[in-house]
């Protein structure tokens, strides 16, 4: 086997991204959609950390920039999950459904 290089991580990240995208586009349940979005965000994180690990050192210390970015992404994901679930609850309260197909009020 080859030694694990950055490319492996990148391929993994791409695959996870695609899986998450399929989930967003395909599932009807909004909760599952939100979970798929978490998958996508995690794929991004993997990508960032892989690159952070591959970057040359900065001032003699390992380069942490990718990880910092990943922290912010996680923060973002948290906020977004919270608000999204709040929206879901509000939606469920009004529409009695959690299926994305049935929420088409903006239809022409």
């Amino acid at each position: 086997m080859h030694p694990i290089s950055t490319v492996h991580y990148l391929v993994l990240s791409a695959a996870l991204l695609l899986i998450g995208t399929v989930g967003v586009l395909t599932r009807r349940n909004v909760v599952i959609i939100l979970m798929s979005i978490e998958l996508i965000l995690n794929a991004v994180n993997i990508n960032l950390v892989a690159f952070s690990h591959a970057l040359p050192p900065l001032d003699g210390l390992p380069n942490m920039r990718g990880q910092v970015f990943a922290i912010f992404v996680i923060t973002d994901a948290v906020a977004e999950a919270a608000v999204g679930l709040g929206i879901l609850i509000a939606l469920f309260r009004n529409k009695e459904t959690v299926l994305a197909d049935e929420i088409d009020l903006l239809k022409w």
């Binding site: 967003v24 586009l25 994305a100 929420i103 088409d104 903006l106 022409w108």
Partner: peptide
């Protein structure tokens, strides 16, 4: 304009 978010995501 289907009104469905997933269509827009697509």
């Amino acid at each position: 304009q289907t009104g469905r978010v997933q269509a827009y995501a697509f």
